[in-house]
Design a protein around this nucleic acid. Structure first.
Lengths: 402, 402
DNA sequence: TCGTTTATACTCGCGGTACGAGCATAAGGC
DNA sequence: GCCTTATGCTCGTACCGCGAGTATAAACGA
């Protein structure tokens, strides 16, 4: 079917094209001249690359606003018929979606409430959106990237405690479509978002931790989350930093998150375990102004959080730590205690310049943005670009519906 | 000085050459035909690459022992005038050295006892060896790779408790020579050795832990250790998994290693803290046959080790864990307790197929072999090869002494 | 012993990428 | 209206890797 010439063209090097797209995602609205400087491209190559990418429907060029002397340059923009990715974030109570172009900006951002918590209902709604996107974008849709508040193992959803789900087969979402489905834990993807477009962009190695119902997170190295052998890494809440007498629903004992989230606060206050740990924590935090016992409980929890983070600094040696979810609130409610527990838990060699613990910037959108990033990474990989080129180049088939 | 032609040649792609060397190090004594198959090289390219590498003094070819029909092929061997790396491992009581060719096998392996523990004495002896290697190998010596039993931070030795060293400037080892000096923590490099040529070669993500005086180790991803922002990652012994009441010499509290090494055994047995935790642990292990209290203490320690490992599996999700130092002995002395504590500490999602905990294979040579690997990685990187080519190609200067 | 089979090595032309020199172009500044 | 400045475009060149075709060196078999 494919001629020898075609085959060779498919095997061409997409390295530079991929680089251009990576820079475009990092600096949306960049001009062609800046791009060439950033990548050290000779002007001739810049001409050739942009021409090729235009032809491949990867980007368009618009006249750039003039700045001083010199021949005007152009602004690089996603092509109106270029590849897109559908990012989805499934969490407790609601799910979100966004469509992303090569520029990395989320479009068509939408939130939906779950009609029921049953997996079939939720996944059915997501599936509908995917089908809708397929009819709308056809061959332009290159991947679906899913963030889910659940334990992931080899692309399988093993358990989602906040959703009340056991094992769920996620491949039904794209079965029959030949669309690649990327799956990631929500905290892991939020970490990717912080590392790429959030508070940790300057860090080579960063640790993102999010306190919600439990503690999740991920270590990122050069913007890529460390996902482990089966994509299950990052369950920091289940490191046994806590009281060995306490049994965790995960099956282990002494899990860190039992000392940090709403369950810990309830224990310290002698109240029953909350059904909604997140809301409960907010309530207790609001009481700290006048309620001494609440303040004391929050302080203890903040110390447990800080001491754990210090231990993680000892093993990971990150440039910085980003805190998400309730983390910043817990820290702000007991700043001094937090800071003392943090530096006190560091090895002395880290104490001269302790890695800063900063608030995450993406908030609730972290997982969705992370999913977008991972999806975009996939779509702008050299292999995927070669693939896009073959479907884009043969006008007889067009960017085919699949 | 350099002609345009030369410049362009320097900027040539060393990718394939680097790949060939990587395969050569993984499979010493490989034939040219096998190499071509492994890398998927067309026979024409194999011819061209080997010719170039011969010319660059990167390898030589010798007739391969004949196997069945077909035109005989050749065995690829390091060039007698090819690049070499000096690997050094400095530890308590002694230091070791080896010279490594592109094949990765250590040559001229030597052990030296420290004449005194003073840093000046030890580093002076190492410096002498480096100078000696420089006169012997000249421009062939491309890097010195140092493993040291110490906390490393931004290429600086911060503290070496077993050696009794405070901050030490290591750059004196190569000052004035323009030789690249690579520095790594001993446990980190042992992890690299296990991942590349040891028990974890099949694993994509592996965790290596070594119990000596304290616990060190590293996570490896595709054979590369995760070193953190300043090369200080891997201090697993200083994760606060233990008793918060115990103060660690590192400055923190509740460090894991206080529950696992000789100090823990002494505490459990009501004996004074040992000056030599390693030897003390060996003694206690030898007593377990007849001494019930010793057996009980070892069991407790083995459980602390196993429970910690389980927690690390929860956060890292490795394919497997390699245990070095006293780890295997502790485990073997209380197999059932270890196994129960291990699986008991895992999240249920990891329990169906818990990552195996296996003995490390390199033993005491791990750090030296790891240093060799890192040094070789550096020397066979594309940039370093381009560098080698420029000095190798201009016969007027020869492989210059620097 | 000599053709046949098999596995590998060598030669050569082609397509493709990237570089860089030189030229063209479109703005502001004087 | 020229000069300066910044950028885009054209084109020749070097080099890489592919693949088809050919050559070579061994074992095998009649």
């Amino acid at each position: 079917m494919a001629s020898p010439t075609r085959q060779r063209a498919d095997a061409a090097r997409w390295h530079t094209v991929s680089q251009v797209l990576a820079v475009l995602a990092r600096r949306p609205g960049i001009t062609r001249a800046e791009m060439a400087r950033e990548l050290g491209l000779a002007s001739g190559l810049a001409t050739e690359i942009t021409a090729r990418m235009r032809e491949l429907r990867l980007l368009t060029e618009a006249p750039a606003p003039v700045r001083g002397r010199g021949r005007p340059t152009t602004v690089l923009r996603p092509h109106p018929e270029g590849p897109v990715v559908l990012a989805v974030d499934v969490r407790q109570g609601q799910w979100r979606q966004a469509v992303i172009t090569v520029e990395g900006q989320p479009h068509e951002l939408r939130h939906h409430r779950h009609r029921s918590r049953r997996p079939e209902t939720v996944l059915g709604a997501v599936r509908k959106t995917i089908d809708h996107a397929l009819t709308r974008y056809g061959g332009r849709l290159r991947a679906v990237s899913l963030a889910v508040a659940a334990t992931i193992h080899d692309r399988h959803l093993v358990q989602a405690s906040t959703l009340g789900w056991g094992p769920v087969d996620l491949d039904t979402l794209t079965s029959g479509t030949s669309l690649p489905l990327l799956i990631g834990n929500d905290a892991t993807l939020a970490a990717a978002a912080e590392a790429r477009t959030g508070a940790a962009t300057a860090a080579g190695t960063a640790l993102h931790l999010i306190v919600e119902a439990g503690i999740g997170g991920a270590l990122t190295i050069d913007g890529r989350p460390v996902t482990g052998a089966h994509g299950a890494a990052g369950e920091y809440g289940h490191l046994p930093l806590g009281d060995r007498e306490l049994r965790c629903p995960c099956g282990a004992r002494g899990c860190w998150e039992l000392e940090v989230d709403g369950r810990a606060l309830a224990r310290h206050l002698g109240e029953p375990a909350p059904t909604d740990p997140h809301g409960y924590t907010r309530d207790v935090l609001n009481r700290t102004g006048h309620d001494t016992r609440a303040r004391q409980a929050v302080t203890t929890v903040a110390q447990a959080l800080a001491a754990g983070i210090a231990g993680l600094v000892n093993i990971h040696d990150p440039d910085l730590i980003t805190l998400g979810g309730l983390g910043p609130a817990l820290r702000d409610a007991a700043r001094v205690a937090f800071q003392n527990a943090y530096t006190g838990g560091l090895m002395t060699s880290h104490r001269t310049q302790p890695p800063p613990v900063v608030d995450a910037t993406h908030g609730d959108d972290g997982p969705l943005r992370g999913a977008a990033i991972i999806g975009l990474d996939h779509t702008t990989s050299e292999a995927a670009l070669a693939n896009w080129a073959t479907s884009s180049r043969s006008p007889d088939r067009g960017p085919a519906r699949r």
